Simulated scan of single mutants.
Amino acid sequence: MSDIILHQYDSSPFSEKVRICLGIKGLSWAAVDQPVIMPKPDLVPLTGGYRRIPVLQLGADIYCDSALIVRELDRRFPEPSLFPGGNRGTANAFEIWADKTLFQSAVLAIFGTLGDGVDPAFIKDREALSGQPFNVAAMKALSPFALTQIKAQAALLAEQLTDGRDFLEGAKPGLADAAAYYNFWFIRTFCPGLIDRLPDVPFLDGWYDRVGAIGHGARSAMSPSDALAAAKAANPIALDTLPGDAPMIGKRVTLAAADYGRDPIAGIFAGSTHYSLSVVRDEAELGAIAVHVPRLGYSITVV
């Protein structure tokens, strides 16, 4: 049984980012396939209410959001590094751009193209997730503009490759590649033919093929019940706390995403870094579970 458990589904773009990072590191991991839409009865007991995908499970420690997941993987399994150029700031910038600007353009292009073919149950679920209308008609109207934006951003990305390097930071792949890659994978998976090849953007397609060839490491399957059993059999790791957060130690707090999927995670504040916030929850059937979220983009409130 693998110690690395990824709660995911195969068509999830943010899961693809993590899967490529697992491939870069050549890690063995177990996939627990979760539903695309709610309810998610085998995920919520681990996360305390957080419903977004992917979620990384390492024993009784649960890591939410792909931005934190990839950093925890790199911390625990440092070689080969997800930051081969040695400049984490560069990779962080690529990731923020990919997760925000490029992802929003990809969503408009994909769902605008699919139009009436989008499952009504999916629309209802995503409206609940975002707290906003999932307006397919508006997306359809905006999809031509979104495509122009994607192509322009592809051209900007390709400028990083004009010196003949194989990957964005040089000879070795890293987080920057995984982050930049997954949106193009998302579009090409859901809307074949939309931007399958971009001959007027030199270097991009060769880079895309090289990243895709990395693969996902050694993947196996795990049932949700086995993942819950693994959490029950483990204890959360010991955590440090930044001095400025020390007054919150032992207090009951809630953590929540600031953008969408704002379902609060309630627990006892247990630790922090410059990049993460952590709570420990006492789950009736599982015992102590630590839930970790990124500091960037998440709020913490003392109850």
Rank of each mutant, 00 (worst) to 15 (best):
S2M: 01
I5R: 15
I5S: 10
H7E: 08
D10R: 14
S12H: 10
V18G: 05
R19F: 03
R19V: 04
K25M: 07
K25D: 06
K25R: 12
S28E: 14
I37F: 08
P39F: 11
L46V: 10
I53W: 03
V55T: 14
G59Q: 11
A60T: 01
D61R: 03
Y63V: 14
C64R: 09
D65H: 04
D65L: 09
I69K: 10
V70H: 08
R71H: 13
D74P: 00
D74Y: 09
F77Y: 15
E79D: 14
E79F: 02
F83H: 09
P84Y: 08
G85F: 01
R88T: 02
A93K: 03
A98D: 07
A98G: 12
K100L: 13
T101W: 04
L102D: 01
Q104V: 03
S105Q: 12
A106V: 12
V107S: 01
G117L: 06
F122R: 13
I123L: 12
D125T: 07
R126E: 03
R126Y: 04
R126T: 07
R126Q: 13
E127K: 07
A128H: 03
L129W: 04
S130R: 11
Q132S: 14
P133E: 00
N135S: 14
K140P: 02
A141E: 14
A141S: 13
A141W: 03
L142Y: 10
P144H: 07
T148Y: 03
T148A: 13
L156K: 15
L157Q: 06
A158D: 07
T162W: 00
D163R: 10
R165D: 05
D166A: 15
F167Y: 15
G174D: 03
L175R: 00
A176W: 10
A176T: 05
D177H: 07
D177S: 08
D177W: 05
A179Q: 06
Y181Q: 13
Y181H: 14
F186I: 00
I187V: 15
C191L: 09
G193H: 09
L194N: 09
D196L: 01
D196F: 01
R197F: 01
L198Q: 07
V201Y: 06
P202N: 11
F203A: 15
L204R: 03
G206A: 14
W207Q: 05
Y208W: 05
R210G: 12
V211P: 14
I214L: 15
H216M: 02
A221S: 14
A221W: 01
M222C: 06
S225M: 10
S225Y: 00
A227H: 02
A230P: 05
A234M: 12
L239Y: 00
L239R: 12
D240C: 00
T241R: 06
L242T: 06
L242I: 11
P243E: 11
G244Y: 08
D245S: 08
D245N: 12
P247Q: 06
V253T: 07
A256S: 15
A258Y: 00
A258R: 15
R262E: 09
I265N: 09
A266K: 13
A266H: 03
T273R: 02
V280Q: 13
R281C: 10
D282I: 10
E283W: 04
G287M: 08
G287Y: 09
I289M: 02
P294H: 13
L296N: 12
S299Y: 07
S299C: 11
I300P: 10
I300V: 15
